[in-house]
Design a protein around this nucleic acid. Structure first.
Lengths: 238, 238
DNA sequence: TTTATACTACTTGTATACAAGTATACTTAT
DNA sequence: ATAAGTATACTTGTATACAAGTAGTATAAA
């Protein structure tokens, strides 16, 4: 099972099941485990040096995220297609637009302050070329916005989406930090725009910012495809 | 553990874990198990005459639905508050509005036909005073709409929402069939309106229909509160 | 050569066992 | 009587065992 894709430090308090889920998710989304591969609980348990119980837990989680399909014999890897990425951003747009409508009716001072802090963190992360930390703060940025309206079921939708998003962003950012570091400036500007939109309650600017964000990711998506090709066959997993 | 709230026939092919999840969900949403109750895996296993494994699975599912909270010692029942019901309908509105925008750009003939069939089924269910069958078809109606656009992540959100909705509708319809049978006519009309809106691509009518649907549920919600009071203390669960 | 049967090696779902940790109650010392 | 420590009876998470079922292969019959 060798080297881990998911940051170990993010797993400090996690159970074995969580570790397996996070690592497996990364391997699937990165393409290290190819679509179509059939995963065996027993083999995974052996690979990760744990018993079947945490592996089962992990597979259930990944199935709920639709990156694997639980069938009668074995769990088949589905992975993320171009369509999936598009769909994820559909949902993000859907959620964040809804959230924005609520936000503009609230006192947004604390939220803006909190977001500014996260943005500063992102800047530092870039300065020190820490892709993982940058990704963490990027995800946190949007999570902070979403949670600010205190809506349990919207939060739930976010929670369901988050792990896949996080992994995807993590992989994208790692690659871009190596190859397209100037992109990060644009991402930062875009987040600053988002904060402004919230501050002023300017819906148009917010939508623009979200779309820009999506365009950025579209670009990432191409890079990610190439990454998939790169890693293809590195570890055929049986 | 005595009598079951969830229709046994819906569980024909379900695992023990699913059975526990469905039944537990019904008991929590109906108020038969009160908010604040701490559930023990061992006790539940004994109650349902299964081992801890399926119970654990069930609790994980219910936690992801936010009707229980998994804590260090025991799973505490959260249940559905008035706010939760409102939130669920927020999300439904969000999803179905998104779906509608896609639908109007498609060929809707097959969908309309399919929905008409489901609506006929609903009529028959009322005719024979079968609240469970009616609920099933009602949920199926909306699921059919949502799945018609073939959007994996929107379907995923629906899947996450569905179990709680289904239980809630089931309980509401059972009570209303006894006490307010004339309501069902209005529900049928409303669904017919929805089909028309899809057929003609009339967004306004669709929104109106959705809101009407929600108002119906608001009414249900009051009934449901009284039901909670009614069943309160029937089985104090320890 | 083709078809039917049985065997092997898997699979899943459930049950049970165990280690490690935590809250409650009960000492015991002050 | 009160504070500190210590049992104890729980809890969770993981490991392991087992029953039932399935796919594919090999063997036997036609």
């Amino acid at each position: 099972m060798s080297d881990l894709l998911y940051p170990i430090k993010w797993l400090s308090k996690a159970s074995a099941g969580d570790r397996v889920a996070h690592e497996l998710r990364m391997r699937i989304i990165s393409g290290k485990i190819e679509s179509g591969t059939v995963l065996s609980e027993n083999k995974l348990a052996a690979d990760f040096s744990v018993s079947r119980s945490p592996v089962r837990d992990a597979l259930k989680v990944l199935a709920s995220e639709r990156i694997i399909r639980l069938e009668r014999m074995g769990a088949v890897v589905v992975g993320l297609s171009k369509k999936d990425i598009q769909e994820i951003y559909d949902v993000r747009l859907l959620i964040e637009t809804f959230v924005f409508e609520r936000i503009v009716k609230m006192d947004r001072q604390d939220l803006v302050r909190e977001l500014s802090k996260v943005l500063e963190m992102m800047k530092i992360a870039i300065k020190y070329k820490d892709a993982d930390e940058f990704s963490y703060q990027d995800v946190l940025f949007h999570e902070t916005i979403i949670r600010s309206i205190d809506h349990g079921y919207v939060s739930m939708m976010w929670q369901n989406l988050k792990p896949v998003m996080e992994s995807f962003i993590l992989l994208s950012m790692r690659q871009r930090l190596d190859e397209d570091i100037e992109d990060f400036e644009r991402i930062l500007e875009n987040h600053a725009l988002y904060i402004e939109a919230i501050e002023t309650g300017d819906r148009k600017r917010m939508i623009a910012s979200l779309h820009q964000n999506f365009d950025d990711v579209q670009e990432v998506e191409d890079l990610w495809k190439s990454q998939q090709l790169m890693t293809k066959g590195v570890e055929p997993h049986d």
